[in-house]
Write a protein that binds this DNA or RNA. Structure first.
Length: 311
DNA sequence: AAGCGGTGCAACCGCATGACC
DNA sequence: TGGTCATGCGGTTGCACCGCT
């Protein structure tokens, strides 16, 4: 990393806090020494009181800057690397529900920061909206996400899970969601996480967006010895979405009743069914642990082709 | 090899909110 | 009740990196 930082002195700006007037403050990229100073200080004294922390740690940074550096980069539980398919799907889903509430969304992606999710959205999702020549907040794009993008993500996730299951048929760390979790909603406790498992999906996603019984049944109960089902989720999604793709326009909602699969997904009033309650989900639950290193959502060329075909 | 444009991400900025006095 | 301060959040910017020409 380039370690050159700018020094913010009194003449550089007319608007400065009292703190900034007291001392020259650095801006720009953090140096290794600064990082180490911050890490060491927090290790010894803990977080909080960021302005005084910055001073006490001998950092010529604002408290804000220290906080941001710690939370977004230095914190030991910050998750590095590409956004996984599961995370992509979850981001799409949560964004559909909450909009640009990045910190709220980040609560459900352990180790991911709001900044990272925001960057992901702006650089990837908005880029795809641009490719589609529509606004990211437009109904067209939202529908494209809901009915094309997310199902495809599900398909890929399932394919990956199936591949994993094939190589580790007796491995309890594969995707595991208990049947009752998938089919009931008892006191909003409608999902379950198996701590030792390689949790790939939010059951709420399964229950609500893709809650077709066939799809539900395709998931392997934790205690099942079979590990696989004849009803592959990927097959179902693929088959059903294939039918849907053939609908010759983009008025998805009007078409929805014609396609069984769509009935399973949502209504125009919202992406989630009433029983869905993310508020009851515990933030930072480790239900996304691994996942592949996918850096692409899926082929947008395919999606563009499908959309163009339907126009 | 150099220039250039696009992309991704770290960092900054301004505002809102809540706690405290 | 109003002022001050700390913190959190979302939007925006700046820059390093990478691929292409």
């Amino acid at each position: 990393m380039d370690v050159k930082g700018k020094v913010l002195n009194k003449s550089s700006t007319m608007i400065q806090s009292e703190e900034e007037e007291d001392m020259d403050l650095r801006r720009g990229p953090w140096t290794l020494d600064e990082d180490l100073a911050l890490i060491n200080y927090i290790a010894n004294h803990g977080e909080g009181r960021w302005n005084s922390l910055a001073r006490s740690a001998g950092l010529k940074r604002t408290g804000k800057s220290c906080r941001l550096r710690w939370l977004n980069y230095l914190r030991p539980d910050v998750r590095r690397g590409n956004i996984t398919l599961e995370e992509q799907l979850l981001i799409l889903e949560l964004h559909a529900r909450w909009g640009n509430r990045w910190s709220k969304i980040a609560q459900y992606l352990p180790g991911r920061t709001d900044n990272e999710i925001k960057n992901y959205w702006r650089t990837r999702v908005q880029k795809h909206a641009k490719q589609l020549k529509c606004d990211v907040n437009s109904k067209q794009f939202k529908d494209a996400m809901r009915y094309l993008w997310m199902p495809r993500l599900m398909e890929r996730i399932q394919a990956a899970a199936t591949a994993t299951a094939a190589t580790t048929t007796t491995d309890s760390s594969t995707l595991s969601i208990t049947p009752n979790v998938m089919t009931t909603n008892n006191n909003n406790n409608n999902f379950e996480v198996h701590s030792g498992g390689n949790m790939m999906l939010s059951p709420t996603i399964m229950n609500n967006n893709f809650g077709c019984s066939q799809i539900k049944q395709s998931y392997t109960p934790e205690n099942s010895s079979t590990g696989t089902s004849s009803d592959s989720f990927g097959t179902h999604v693929s088959d059903l979405t294939h039918d849907y793709y053939s609908v010759p326009n983009l008025d998805y909602y009007q078409q929805a009743h014609q396609v069984n699969y769509i009935d399973c997904i949502t209504s125009p009033s919202g992406l989630f069914s009433p029983e869905m309650d993310f508020q009851t989900m515990e933030p930072n639950t480790q239900w996304i642990q691994n996942g592949d290193i996918s850096n692409n959502l899926w082929s947008f060329e395919n999606m563009l082709q499908q959309l163009n075909d339907n126009m």
